[in-house]
Amino acid sequence: MPDEHVSILQSLGVAVLALAAVVWVFGLISLLRGRSGAGGPTLYGFPYQRQAAPHLESVELTPAERDAFAGLVRQLNDGR
C-alpha cells in the first residue's frame, strides 16, 4: 500500500525506472545471445583484429649504432 506522503509522480518515476531496468536486462541478454558464436561475442565498435601475428621486422644496425645501443644499455643498467 503506497504511503500517503508519496506523490503520484514519485510512484510513477519508480515504476518507469523499474520497467527501464527490466527492459535493459532483457535487451542485454538477447544481445549477448544473438551475437555469441563459436568465437565469442563480436564487438562491432572495434576494428578487425588479425588472428595471426604480424610479420617480424628487423633492421641491420651499423657498428656505430650497435655501440651507441650498448652504451645506452650500460647507462640504464648503471642507473639501477
Rank of each mutant, 00 (worst) to 15 (best):
Q51L: 11
A68F: 03
P54N: 06
V16T: 15
W24Q: 11
V23R: 08
V6D: 12
G13R: 14
L31D: 13
R74D: 00
A68S: 07
W24G: 12
D67P: 01
L72N: 12
A21L: 12
L9Q: 09
R80D: 02
G27T: 04
L76K: 03
G39M: 05
L12G: 04
V59S: 09
R66L: 12
E65K: 03
M1Q: 04
G37F: 00
Q49W: 03
L76P: 01
P2C: 02
Q49A: 14
Q49K: 11
Y44F: 08
Y48F: 07
F26R: 07
S30M: 11
G71S: 13
P54W: 02
A52I: 08
L32R: 10
Q75G: 07
T62R: 03
R74C: 00
Y48A: 13
S7N: 02
A21F: 06
Q75R: 08
P47T: 03
P41I: 13
T42E: 09
L32E: 08
M1I: 05
V23L: 10
L12M: 13
L17E: 10
L32K: 10
H5C: 03
E57L: 08
A18P: 01
Q10W: 01
L32H: 09
A53T: 09
L32P: 00
H5G: 06
E4S: 09
V6I: 15
G27Q: 04
Y48E: 15
R33Q: 12
V22P: 00
Q75N: 06
D78E: 15
L17R: 11
R50V: 00
P41A: 14
G79N: 14
A68I: 02
Q51G: 15
E60G: 05
A20W: 04
G13N: 15
F46R: 09
S7W: 02
L19E: 06
Y48S: 15
Q10S: 08
H5E: 12
G13W: 00
R33P: 00
V14T: 13
Y44Q: 06
S36M: 08
T62D: 06
N77A: 04
F26T: 11
D3S: 12
R74A: 13
H55L: 13
R33K: 13
A64F: 03
L9K: 08
G45Q: 04
D3I: 02
I8G: 04
A20N: 05
A68M: 05
G45V: 06
S11L: 15
R33E: 04
A15T: 13
A21M: 10
Q75K: 08
F46L: 15
Q75D: 12
D3C: 07
G79P: 02
P41E: 12
A68R: 13
A52C: 04
Q49D: 09
D67Y: 02
V14D: 14
S36A: 11
S11D: 07
P63G: 01
Q75T: 11
S7L: 01
A70G: 02
L56I: 14
G45D: 01
P41V: 15
G79T: 03
L19R: 12
S58W: 11
G79W: 02
N77K: 01
R35F: 05
S30T: 10
